[in-house]
Amino acid sequence: MLKGLAITPPTVGRISIGRVVEKNGKRLPEKDDQFTLTTQVINRGEWVLHPLNETLRKATTGKLRSIPVRMLFNDPDLNLRAEYSLFDRRTGRPLCVGNGETCKRVTDGGITTMDCPTPDGCAFGEAGGCKPYGRLNVTIGQEDELGSFIFRTTSYNSIRTLSARLQYFSAVSGGLLACLPLELKLRGKSTTQSYGSAIYYVDLGVRAGSSLQEAITQARELNTTRQAAGFAQAALDAAARVGFANGAFEDSIEESAAVAEEFYPAESGHDRSHDDGHDDTGGPAASGLKARLDKRAALLGGKAA
């Protein structure tokens, strides 16, 4: 295993809400009120749709607002990884990642471990727009049971809701989270920050037409079948845990490009969270952000690389 390289779940596609479109020569975020499944390939500036996108749409009479999924791991924190993250908006590469207690920050001397006071109490994070950033990996369909679709989000609503659901489903199923038949659901709500308009976030529930008790029964049956076949779920969780810990940051250089495309379209200079309803937060342009980061970092004793 290459040291310094986080080994993450194999990804076969993306789950997104909204997209980036070209308008007047600029690539700008455009929100949506439904899911879209894409491959990891961009063609002519657009993410190529995954075949499952059309398959799932044919199974619904309206917009794609629910997706049947299973979790890869029994440990909730392996399925959804969420941290406070500050990115270089030009490249999407992480500059600082923390959990509210400690963080890893890029400095002239390399990656340094520091205290993490959360974005509200961090001068460095305040300068650059540090915020929660989550990645959820789920399996869809039966074609590749260890391949996953990734949903990236900077939405407080999605991260908080998904975290709670995963913990609760793990608890009530007796730790059989990976065997539960679940579905991602798109929900809408209005807040004072959205000025009364609907914003959309992602939730997790049992599949339509099934009760929680029925889902737990199915999970126990699947777990028994897997154990009889020699499927070692605990070993899979352990391998994933080691893989995630193998690198300082989870996102690779290639994945950083996707982060920049989804949340920080370079031409617009605006921040974007596809599913939290706050399309344009008026973030500074990349050059201004870099200058502010350098200034803050110098004050804190470590200039951001």
Rank of each mutant, 00 (worst) to 15 (best):
A235C: 03
T225N: 06
T139C: 09
F249K: 02
S66I: 05
N79Y: 12
N74D: 15
G288I: 04
S155F: 07
L289I: 12
L300K: 04
T224R: 15
R220E: 15
N74H: 10
F151L: 13
R226E: 14
L236Q: 09
T60S: 12
V172Y: 12
D251N: 11
S155P: 02
G243H: 05
V69S: 01
S252K: 04
K104S: 11
G62N: 08
A286Y: 13
P181R: 02
F149D: 01
T36C: 07
A305Q: 11
G92E: 02
F151I: 02
E221K: 10
R93C: 02
N53W: 00
T153M: 05
T113W: 03
L5T: 07
D33V: 00
T224V: 12
K189Y: 13
I159K: 00
L49P: 00
L64V: 01
G277W: 02
L146N: 13
D77F: 14
R152K: 06
G110Y: 06
R135K: 13
L162D: 02
T192Y: 15
S148D: 03
G109W: 08
K303L: 14
S148C: 11
F249H: 02
G92V: 04
G18C: 05
D88S: 08
R160D: 13
R226Y: 15
D115M: 05
A258H: 11
T36I: 11
A260C: 09
N24Q: 11
P132C: 06
D33I: 01
M71H: 01
S173P: 05
H278F: 11
P9W: 06
Y168E: 14
I150V: 15
G121M: 09
F35K: 00
C96S: 09
S252L: 07
E267P: 05
L222A: 15
D279I: 15
P68F: 04
K104A: 11
P181T: 03
K3F: 14
Q193T: 13
G134R: 05
L299H: 10
A229Y: 12
K3H: 13
T192R: 11
R19Y: 14
K104M: 14
R90L: 10
V12Q: 05
L289S: 01
I111F: 12
T91Q: 04
L166D: 04
F149M: 01
G205D: 14
E30M: 11
S16H: 06
L166F: 03
V48Q: 09
T38D: 02
L289N: 03
Q142N: 06
S287D: 15
G301V: 08
N137R: 09
L136H: 05
E267C: 12
Q34M: 06
A234T: 12
S163M: 08
K303D: 06
Q167G: 15
D237Q: 03
L136N: 06
I253Y: 14
F249E: 02
R220W: 01
L222T: 11
G205S: 15
L2E: 08
Q218H: 11
P119Q: 05
R65E: 14
S273D: 11
